[in-house]
Design a protein around this nucleic acid. Sequence first.
DNA 1: GGCTAAGCGAGACGGTACGTCTTGTCTTTAG
DNA 2: CTAAAGACAAGACGTACCGTCTCGCTTAGCC
Lengths: 198, 198, 198, 198
Amino acid sequence: MPSPTPDPARRSDRARSSILSATRERLAEVGYAKLTIEGIASRAGVGKQTIYRWWPSKGAVVFDAILDASLGPDGSTTLPDTGELEADLRTVMRGIVGELADPATDRMQRAVLAELQLDPPLATELLERLLRPQTDAFADRLCRARDAGQVRDDLDPSVAVELFLGPVFHRWLLRTAPLDEAFADRVVEHALAGLAPR
Amino acid sequence: MPSPTPDPARRSDRARSSILSATRERLAEVGYAKLTIEGIASRAGVGKQTIYRWWPSKGAVVFDAILDASLGPDGSTTLPDTGELEADLRTVMRGIVGELADPATDRMQRAVLAELQLDPPLATELLERLLRPQTDAFADRLCRARDAGQVRDDLDPSVAVELFLGPVFHRWLLRTAPLDEAFADRVVEHALAGLAPR
Amino acid sequence: MPSPTPDPARRSDRARSSILSATRERLAEVGYAKLTIEGIASRAGVGKQTIYRWWPSKGAVVFDAILDASLGPDGSTTLPDTGELEADLRTVMRGIVGELADPATDRMQRAVLAELQLDPPLATELLERLLRPQTDAFADRLCRARDAGQVRDDLDPSVAVELFLGPVFHRWLLRTAPLDEAFADRVVEHALAGLAPR
Amino acid sequence: MPSPTPDPARRSDRARSSILSATRERLAEVGYAKLTIEGIASRAGVGKQTIYRWWPSKGAVVFDAILDASLGPDGSTTLPDTGELEADLRTVMRGIVGELADPATDRMQRAVLAELQLDPPLATELLERLLRPQTDAFADRLCRARDAGQVRDDLDPSVAVELFLGPVFHRWLLRTAPLDEAFADRVVEHALAGLAPR
DNA sequence: GGCTAAGCGAGACGGTACGTCTTGTCTTTAG
DNA sequence: CTAAAGACAAGACGTACCGTCTCGCTTAGCC
């Protein structure tokens, strides 16, 4: 009888990483909509069953493929803290805008985002493992600013973070207008004004 | 040989509207990922070719189905203007939050949004026909407020609108935290503070 | 209410003959299996309904198309009668072999024959209108030979005819061996020997 | 990517034989013209692709289905040889007539024959595998008769066989007249007379 | 010589089947 | 005894035609 729950200890690392690489390659080549398990398996030189054994869905593979690529060094995230709040936020926001505007990552990001809408459990996991560290870091920086008296003292970090990220993300997502550093700067300016000490 | 460019004058309205209704029904029942053209056709009592004759893709049908449902009376959109800027914006934002939080529309909205990520031309059309009127109305209200001296006079409407909609949308999309009226109120408060006359 | 039984008096001759021509053209071009009503209609510059109005099936159209081409002058058929029985039969049989071997008619003949197997009423009609006159003429010639004492006097014409036509047809149909004039001659020789006066 | 040339060694015998059975069942139920691949697949409990993987066309499946049914024991064919030539041939010819007249096989035979007209490669294969053994056996019997001095010594077996089979086949095919044992007997009588030693 | 009923061209419609593609499972084969 | 290769059942894809059904537009033939 084949084991219904495969033993992770015996998992082949070669297979795993070639599947994730192949996924990223196919994703870049044909896009998410035309991505197929068979295509990944054949590119990775792997049997389909080896994919089905370890991942429950196409979305999960893609998700892991992207996670695998993002998590370069250790996974910890911190924002710069030079004391100059507005300058620091500008740096971060410009970085985000730059990444979103990069055509190479754009396609992949949209693919994952699309998948997230249709697969809530996946959304939750990605939220916790990728997004949460970033928003937490953002919130941390704002809390330090609050302790330094640079923003109002009744600051709600979870709301404040969205004041910064929301506009940028909204514009990227819906393509309502060009997404550039000037826009990032203006968002920082206004959001910060909205958080100013009374 | 079938005509490569069908004649819109001969189009059957019965077929068109039953297809759009069936699309909405199936979308609500099985979700976007499991939505099939065959399912729509069979539910609508329509031949598949009748769908393929008038729409190029599944996304386009869904798009029209949603547009068809949204465009009730005329299509014009205006925001309330009682003179009380913050109260007006609160009303609007609470409405948006309410709509996004409604499970019935939530699924459909996410489906369309996912599709938009993978089909830029569709995104452009939806932007122009559904979203633009709403953001324009929003911008209009803010411009009137500026003329009344309620916000700073160097206001850039395209940026300002995103300060309000972005955070709400971001939270809905990524499910980072509960989306409720209290959050809507806080976003309005902070965004308005950020736009206050200097 | 549309007339369920169209009025033959008002039938357009232009439509009729262009349909039959188009049928023959398409038949020669793509063969019977890939022949379509839509193809015929479009080639004939005719609406599909005009075909469906006058013919019940594809087979019927093809049948008429072929009949229309075969019935050149009057329709009467007679075999040569020079008194030399064997020579006369050889002439006729060589003619039949020549026609069957002609690639132009071969395809059309096989198409009709195939259709006949699947549509008995059609088979009956074709038998009466096309084949019967030919076999009757053949039988006539043999009866005259019998009266002249050239063949046995208990001759059954309906059997005798098949002794001549059967072998030729069988070989053509099943392609068991090359079909040529030499074969025709040998069939005549043997069949005639089998019918010789005792 | 599916293999373009499937590996016969891995072929499922269960699928193969249930497809052939289902084909015969559907053929008997609805006839050749209304026979569909989808119908066969669904009756056989088989995916359509499994049919398309192993057969190029509907005709080929039907062909194999019939071959599969005809080739009961070993496939070798011999004619009776009691020394009484005319009696032996009568036995054989009556058998053929009986088989053709049986309504159960009639439909199937006509279906295959129709298909053969439209698909020459299929015709060739069937000729070699089904028909040739039978005509060869027939020719063998006649050669033995020639060696025994019962027929003329310049006998051409390939012609002689058609003298017997042709008339029967012609009558069956074109339904020119009733096909019964009396006819079979008369054909034997005449054909044999035509082959008598000079 | 208009009137009107039919045939006509065109082609959209509800359907069926096509042949292809992908999914997720199950089986065979080679290392 | 694992994992590649790939056959399998299932079913959606998008296309081609089917036969029916309106449409306007000729086009007879009766008034």
